[in-house]
Design a protein around this nucleic acid. Structure first.
Lengths: 342, 342
DNA sequence: CTGTTAGCGCATTCAA
DNA sequence: TTGAATGCGCTAACAG
């Protein structure tokens, strides 16, 4: 009740007049006589006893913590994932410890070293760039790791990813159906896993529909942020006038929206816009943003469950899960282009 | 190098031909002969030895972890704070463990119990609602706690808060200067600390400028989210037509922006808009959103440093820091109302 | 059902 | 400088 100093099993045992083993048993719900249970409970209550997590961890070899490492905490898609992972693992008594990396592969390698100190029981990692070195370290890791995002072929690690090639395809298909022909693409850095995949998806989808890809119709933002998106959109618009733009994520799309309206053009009247990730900001945007839902929350949940599974069964077979994308249609892409209308 | 099974001090000691004490010393940089240092280093490297964090924690009584509990992980302002705190404490070797609470005081009390298990060395807490019970538990806590947000008078806890009364004042003053007279207010729940403070600020600022507060000019969103903001804005607009609205945070403001434009009105032409928190979305919004910067990042940094200070010096005097607000003016509030212009 | 005991892996005191 | 020994607080054998 009152600000107890710090009681341990021994203190409780003394007060209850039993052995420390009995205290431990009672507190862990193991069989004990009513008399013992009662006295232990009372003693523990009186002393304000709280079991020590560190000591328990050392003994049982589990920290009840899961580490999460994502590249960009500023990106709403990661926030949503973080939230979901936290929710899922909490149900199994795990806490979430955040390990922010700058997106550089080296940061992630450092993290792995650190992880091996055993401050967490497992890791969920969403790397932006996957180097050979990183892959090598990943395989060597002593504890369970689940990767969110694509991995090179042949890498046998639990992993859950989105089919972003198909995702971009959905966007292009939708825009084409609305009668758009000049479909540009604002991508993030091409040397990232999502950047490369989304570019591939764009090119394939355009080819499939026999839409011509104007050389000036693709630009790359220096990273997946709003700020970089502004620059990229400026550079795109100043050299080419599309009637639609697919953006590699929602932040880039919102940036494009801003640049477009700033130029006196309208969305979707002059230029239709589709983002990716379907984050909260797609809903907030004005007009609201059509976006490819890559199942971020579903991926997060799947990753968390995969990790929990492996934590409970280290020998389980490696599992790779692909989440299918779907399109969330909102205002930014509806209707034909104004030019076509008039 | 290769996937070492799991080496401990003893293993390293054996291989190096010294005692475990020497290994411990070398690895912690304590004085030792060159010969010993060298052989230990070599052995450790060969074995891929990594010290165990849990064992170290148990021994030294420190986990090197700081817990952070915020009400709503979905709110960008908390994300920004989280990020900053993580950055600051990482420099001192601390990790961040996330403890999401639902915003209910009971969740926070549960968290405190949990904290006393010692999985972290300290806590940074930003409670939405401060009950007497919570305050009582806060005082009893065995480990250092820093509160972000206002506390009842007389509660002696390290704490850093924003002067949101003045913050709202800045917003009202700015709008009044632009010639707006019918300044409405969209608040969050009134039973929260920020909700209560911001309402007070609004009323005081309006009174100070002798602006009349129409009874229908204030509405309360059921929480500080975009969705709740839509409802609140609808209900406001349908009963009253202001020429400006101050919103208790950016999410509510963006929601209001959407409702306003959906009605065919313009921002800031018909209605000027000011948000609070000055989060990323203020920049993204279209038009960009004028917002009261409550120094979220500064508060986060101050809180982190306060906690680190107390961790290093448990006897330090309690410190309470107030961060001054400032206004970030953007497009949503610039210029006179259209009616006034025409 | 209960008590005694042995570590988990490490930092640290105390002797040597 | 170095090694042997102790114990952080707890759980899990093992006896009784």
């Amino acid at each position: 009740m009152a600000m107890a100093k710090k009681s341990t099993l021994v203190l409780v045992a003394e007060r209850a007049g039993v052995s420390i083993a009995s205290v431990s048993r009672v507190l862990n719900g193991l069989p004990a006589s009513d008399r013992v249970v009662e006295s232990v409970r009372a003693a523990a209550r009186d002393l304000g006893y709280v079991p020590d997590a560190t000591a328990r961890s050392l003994k049982v070899g589990k920290t009840e913590q899961v580490a999460l490492a994502v590249a960009d905490v500023g990106n709403p898609v990661y926030v949503a994932m973080m939230h979901e992972i936290s929710r899922v693992i909490a149900k199994d008594g795990y806490r979430l410890v955040l390990s922010s990396t700058g997106g550089a592969a080296q940061d992630e390698i450092d993290l792995l070293d650190n992880l091996n100190r055993g401050f967490a029981d497992g890791l969920i990692l969403s790397p932006l760039r996957v180097t050979d070195d990183l892959v090598a370290r990943l395989r060597e890791s002593r504890l369970p790791i689940v990767i969110i995002g694509s991995l090179p072929d042949g890498v046998e690690l639990d992993n859950v990813r989105a089919d972003s090639v198909r995702g971009v395809g959905l966007a292009v298909k939708h825009l084409a159906k609305q009668g758009r022909r000049q479909i540009a693409f604002i991508n993030g850095p091409i040397d990232t896993v999502p950047g490369a995949a989304r570019l591939g998806g764009y090119l394939r989808a355009m080819a499939k529909r026999e839409l011509v890809v104007h050389p000036d119709a693709q630009v790359y933002a220096s990273d997946f942020t709003f700020k970089a998106g502004l620059e990229a959109a400026e550079s795109l618009i100043s050299q080419f006038t599309p009637d639609a733009i697919v953006c590699a994520n929602d932040l880039l799309a919102v940036a494009a929206m801003k640049v477009i309206t700033r130029r006196g053009l309208s969305v979707p009247g002059d230029i239709a816009l589709v983002g990716m990730d379907d984050t909260d900001i797609a809903e907030l945007a004005n007009p609201s943003l059509t976006s490819v839902n890559l199942g971020s929350v579903a991926r997060a949940r799947a990753a968390a469950k995969l990790l929990l599974r492996r934590l409970n069964d280290p020998g389980a077979p490696v599992k790779q899960i692909v989440i299918e994308p779907r399109l969330t249609i909102r205002e930014s892409s509806i209707g034909p282009a104004q030019a076509a209308t008039s």
